[in-house]
């Protein structure tokens, strides 16, 4: 949490000014290295901000001479086989490192292995790959699910019925958040999940799904979500004329905006959390550290970004319309993430 607050104030102050304490030797070591980002999908606000964060960080680093080039590639159809081909193309283009936001944690392993065999450094983040030769910057999605139920338990000591909005079926993120929520419900046994629906991390899908399910549900006290689905859920409850439950949100601007409006109206309070798209900049700096020859553990964890009633105003001000709450990471952040993984 202190880590989050620190990152937050950094973001609020002015984010991407990379006031690094001079050029260290480690940075010069990577001056002739070329890095590519292989991204599987660009069709939602989170990914758009992620690409923007990467490009801003990469441009700054290239101008500062930290790195020779850092280019972003996105596949057009969000398919694992297409991304595998893309990674193989990037190997052929002679990049020194490939940073991956993967369409599948396992289906790219063949291509990742080809890259490692060719001497290319592979770093995956957000959508990680399981190939042992790659680095992983992962989010503890299970904890994210569990903490949602923890929060609801602190607000509703008597428990009640929960509605679970799930993500895209067949993806590992969906499985992990779901598993975390299940464990949370086991811990706080006053709660029970009385319905679940796939929202595919999209407001309109969630709205349609919830609207279809609502008539068959008892009174709902809380809604656990996966991000990108909270606003649609709220709309469905509103349209059905039901009492608004506590909906845990996922940092999208429309969700935060709605929260602010509700709070102004009747003092509605909730919690919002998600992984900051700026994690792409963290992946960039971690990759730079690996290329510079630093000893970096293969598994790193990023903290997620939480928005509470206290921080809502300031975050919402920082977040453009249709976007996601963000924070951009610096080299120092990358080093502290690496150090904390070393100690753990």
């Amino acid at each position: 949490m202190t880590q989050n607050n620190k990152l937050f104030s950094a973001a609020v102050i002015g984010a991407i000014s990379l006031t690094l304490s001079g050029m260290t030797q480690a940075q010069e070591a990577t001056a002739d290295k070329r890095v590519a980002l292989s991204n599987n999908y660009a069709g939602n606000s989170w990914r758009q901000v992620m690409l923007q964060s990467f490009e801003e960080t990469a441009e700054q680093a290239t101008n500062d001479g930290v790195i020779d080039a850092a280019d972003a590639y996105t596949t057009s159809e969000n398919q694992a086989t297409e991304q595998a081909a893309q990674i193989q193309n990037l190997i052929l283009q002679g990049y020194d490192a490939i940073i991956i936001d993967a369409a599948s944690p396992t289906a790219l392993n063949g291509a990742v292995q080809e890259a490692c065999d060719a001497g290319v450094t592979v770093v995956s983040f957000d959508g990680i790959v399981t190939a042992p030769c790659a680095w992983r910057i992962a989010v503890d999605f299970e904890a994210m699910g569990h903490q949602q139920v923890d929060y609801l338990a602190s607000r509703l000591p008597d428990g009640g019925n929960l509605l679970e909005i799930r993500g895209l079926a067949g993806t590992s993120v969906d499985e992990q958040i779901h598993a975390g929520i299940q464990r949370g419900v086991e811990t706080h046994d006053a709660f029970r999940i009385s319905g679940s629906v796939h929202g595919d991390w999209a407001q309109e899908v969630a709205q349609k799904g919830v609207a279809g399910l609502l008539p068959s549900l008892p009174e709902i006290a809380g809604v656990v979500t996966q991000g990108g689905d909270g606003y649609g859920t709220a709309q469905a409850f509103d349209a059905a004329g039901r009492d608004m439950p506590i909906i845990v949100l996922g940092n999208r601007q429309d969700e935060l905006q709605w929260w602010q409006e509700q709070h102004a109206k009747d003092g509605y309070e909730t919690l919002s959390m998600s992984i900051a798209p700026g994690v792409a900049s963290l992946a960039f700096w971690v990759t730079q550290q690996i290329l510079a020859g630093e000893e970096v553990p293969k598994d790193l964890t990023v903290p997620f970004l939480k928005v509470t009633q206290d921080t809502l105003e300031s975050v919402l001000e920082e977040t453009p319309r249709g976007s996601v709450a963000n924070t951009v990471y610096t080299l120092d952040d990358a080093q502290s993430v690496i150090a904390s993984a070393d100690n753990g």
């Binding site: 398919q79 694992a80 086989t81 396992t106 289906a107 392993n109 063949g110 291509a111 399981t130 067949g170």
Partner: peptide, 17 residues
């Protein structure tokens, strides 16, 4: 052949085929 190349599978792996 696809699994031999990718080393593992997922349910949506070949939809674009």
């Amino acid at each position: 052949a696809l699994v031999g190349l990718t080393t593992s599978a997922d349910a949506n792996i070949a939809l674009r085929y």
